Simulated assay, not measured.
Amino acid sequence: MQMSSRVKVNMKWNDPGLAWNTNTSNATAIMLPVDKIWTPRLILDNAIDITAQPYKSDVLVLRNGNVDHAVILFVSVSCEINLFTYPFVIGDCPVAINGWNQGSCGLILSFTDDITMSGSEQSGEWLTENVNITHDKRTYLSVTLSINPFSAVVTLILPSALIILADLVSFALPVQGGERNNLKVTLVLSFTMFLVILNDHLSSGTSCSPLLHYHFCFCLVNLVLSMVTSMVLTRLTSDDSILPCKCSKIIKTQNANLGHYGADAGLTETKTSTDQASEVASLQKIVIFLDNMDQKEQVANSNVGFVDRLDKICFCFFLFIDIIYIIIVVIVTRTDICKPKPLVIWDKEDYYFYFWDYFNDTSYNY
Rank of each mutant, 00 (worst) to 15 (best):
residue 3 M to C: 11
residue 5 S to M: 08
residue 6 R to F: 02
residue 12 K to D: 12
residue 13 W to C: 02
residue 14 N to C: 13
residue 15 D to M: 04
residue 16 P to F: 05
residue 17 G to I: 01
residue 18 L to Q: 08
residue 18 L to K: 12
residue 19 A to N: 11
residue 19 A to T: 15
residue 24 T to E: 06
residue 27 A to S: 10
residue 31 M to N: 14
residue 34 V to L: 09
residue 35 D to S: 08
residue 42 L to P: 01
residue 43 I to A: 00
residue 47 A to C: 05
residue 48 I to L: 09
residue 48 I to K: 14
residue 53 Q to T: 10
residue 58 D to Y: 00
residue 58 D to T: 08
residue 62 L to D: 14
residue 65 G to Q: 03
residue 65 G to Y: 02
residue 66 N to M: 11
residue 68 D to Q: 07
residue 68 D to F: 11
residue 70 A to P: 00
residue 71 V to R: 04
residue 78 S to E: 13
residue 82 N to V: 01
residue 82 N to E: 05
residue 83 L to A: 15
residue 85 T to Q: 12
residue 86 Y to P: 13
residue 89 V to W: 04
residue 90 I to C: 01
residue 94 P to Y: 12
residue 94 P to G: 01
residue 96 A to C: 00
residue 98 N to K: 13
residue 99 G to Q: 10
residue 101 N to R: 14
residue 102 Q to M: 11
residue 104 S to Y: 03
residue 106 G to D: 03
residue 107 L to Y: 12
residue 112 T to A: 06
residue 113 D to A: 09
residue 116 T to N: 02
residue 116 T to H: 00
residue 118 S to E: 14
residue 121 E to R: 05
residue 125 E to G: 10
residue 128 T to Y: 04
residue 129 E to Y: 03
residue 129 E to T: 03
residue 129 E to C: 02
residue 136 D to T: 11
residue 141 L to I: 15
residue 143 V to W: 00
residue 144 T to D: 03
residue 144 T to G: 00
residue 150 F to H: 08
residue 150 F to N: 02
residue 159 P to Q: 01
residue 160 S to I: 04
residue 162 L to M: 07
residue 166 A to T: 07
residue 166 A to M: 04
residue 168 L to K: 01
residue 171 F to E: 06
residue 174 P to K: 11
residue 175 V to P: 03
residue 175 V to K: 02
residue 178 G to V: 03
residue 184 K to D: 10
residue 184 K to I: 05
residue 186 T to W: 02
residue 187 L to P: 08
residue 188 V to Q: 01
residue 190 S to L: 07
residue 192 T to N: 08
residue 193 M to N: 14
residue 199 N to V: 15
residue 202 L to R: 12
residue 203 S to E: 05
residue 203 S to K: 04
residue 204 S to V: 05
residue 205 G to Y: 06
residue 206 T to N: 06
residue 209 S to H: 07
residue 209 S to F: 09
residue 222 N to V: 05
residue 222 N to I: 01
residue 226 S to H: 02
residue 230 S to T: 06
residue 232 V to Q: 04
residue 235 R to E: 13
residue 244 P to R: 00
residue 245 C to R: 02
residue 247 C to P: 10
residue 251 I to R: 11
residue 252 K to E: 09
residue 257 N to K: 13
residue 257 N to S: 10
residue 257 N to Q: 08
residue 258 L to V: 07
residue 260 H to Q: 14
residue 261 Y to L: 10
residue 263 A to Y: 09
residue 268 T to R: 15
residue 276 Q to R: 14
residue 278 S to Y: 15
residue 281 A to G: 09
residue 283 L to G: 14
residue 283 L to D: 15
residue 283 L to C: 10
residue 284 Q to G: 09
residue 286 I to T: 05
residue 288 I to P: 00
residue 288 I to K: 07
residue 289 F to E: 02
residue 290 L to G: 01
residue 291 D to F: 03
residue 293 M to N: 04
residue 294 D to Y: 04
residue 294 D to A: 03
residue 296 K to G: 09
residue 304 V to T: 13
residue 309 R to I: 07
residue 311 D to A: 13
residue 321 I to L: 15
residue 323 I to C: 01
residue 323 I to Q: 05
residue 327 I to L: 10
residue 330 V to E: 07
residue 332 V to P: 08
residue 336 D to K: 15
residue 340 P to T: 14
residue 341 K to W: 15
residue 344 V to D: 15
residue 350 D to A: 14
residue 351 Y to W: 05
residue 351 Y to V: 12
residue 356 W to F: 06
residue 359 F to C: 05
residue 359 F to A: 02
residue 360 N to P: 01
residue 361 D to L: 09
